[in-house]
Amino acid sequence: MPFWAQVREIARKDLVIEIRTAEVLLMTVPFAAAALVLIPFAIGTDAPLLAELGPGLFWIVVLLFGVLVILRKSAVDEGPQQDLVRLLGIDPAARFTGSTVATSLLVLLFEVALLPILIALYNPDLGGWWWMAAVLPLVAAGLGLLGSLTGGVTASLGTRTSLTPLLIVPLALPLLVGATQAVESLQLGRSILPWLVLLAAVDLALAVSGVLAARPLEEVTT
């Protein structure tokens, strides 16, 4: 079976399972939205301040709560399912890519769902908003890739849910920097391009690492 057909099968399987459990849409999105409601109680409800901090808060919420999208149930194959997929003879790189595509799409959905809530609550400057069409997918892909890599390393470990965030968050800094500075550059009227290049470079480095690590990762079972 051709590589991309395998990728499509794996991604579709992950997404169908996600649609049935609705973990991201019905649990993670409301949780993150509630956080956006709570934050002003801690930092004050001063309108100009919220408008200024809003974009940064959005990205930090996407990064930290996005880890829950990465940890969702449909991202993990339990022991017997893992055996099944390994024995079906799927190219490990296709499996990595397929689950990354699914996770990235869900992170993108997560971002898109939170965006209107942020705009409504914080009223940020929306200048150059169409650039978000590039920034959101690049960040989603980066988180999806980091998620598949770290998720692969922590697969079937008892402490997976605590360990994975610890592994993801320090390495996600370039994504956070790229996203927040892209938005800030827009507001300052500077070029957004370097930050998009940064995001793309991070995605590329992670994608190459992931494809190369796929085979050794495939043998990770206990």
Binding site: V153, P170, P174, V177, R190, L198, A201, L206, S209
Partner: peptide, 27 residues
Amino acid sequence: RRAAIMGIVAFIQIPIVYQSVNWWRSL
């Protein structure tokens, strides 16, 4: 196996982390 993969992936990311902070600061 797991540690080796994580060690290598993290190592590849570290220069990017450094560079991103550098650029962030330049702004």
